[in-house]
Write a protein that binds this DNA or RNA. Sequence first.
DNA 1: CTACTTTTTACGCCATGGCGTAACAATCGA
DNA 2: TCGATTGTTACGCCATGGCGTAAAAAGTAG
Lengths: 81, 81
Amino acid sequence: MDLTARTAEKIGEALRRTRKARGWTQSDISARTNLRVATISSLENGDAGAKLATVLAVMAALGLEFRLVERGGSLEIEDIF
Amino acid sequence: MDLTARTAEKIGEALRRTRKARGWTQSDISARTNLRVATISSLENGDAGAKLATVLAVMAALGLEFRLVERGGSLEIEDIF
DNA sequence: CTACTTTTTACGCCATGGCGTAACAATCGA
DNA sequence: TCGATTGTTACGCCATGGCGTAAAAAGTAG
């Protein structure tokens, strides 16, 4: 699980994929973040208008963090192994 | 340039650092994104209420992209070299 | 097909982001 | 030190996110 994203859609997909990988429902995330299920849904569907705080809360609940990397960026871990 | 962030503050710092590294002013970013200088300033200062679209626009202007990685995650590139 | 779970969408409401514009503060070069 | 560039903050305005609540739609197990 390690996803690159330049768009809200990609971020949404990454969040949903990670959530599913955890075997969690949007309701689970809701409980862990105090965000409504509807908000989680909107975010996973690529709402670019979502607040940064919302994204960060969901990411924290999923145990994820952002890494800001140069586009077309540096050495990939896959390039080594 | 490769920064990890779990908070709006960290993201703001990363954006500012990258912008400086490019030798650009907030006005330059403003021109490339159609966001006001004030908005860039707010974002760089860690506004968690900023919209995802705003963050993505600035990142695109800086040639950055997000990578969603597991927290305390996998092997760091620094661990290898 | 049916019942249950999960996700999506809607309505009214309040809070706030980002806009234009502008002034103020801070940083920097000569 | 001073003028100029860069960055921060403010005001009024409009648009919209996220809230509570609720219902509809989609997905899943039996």
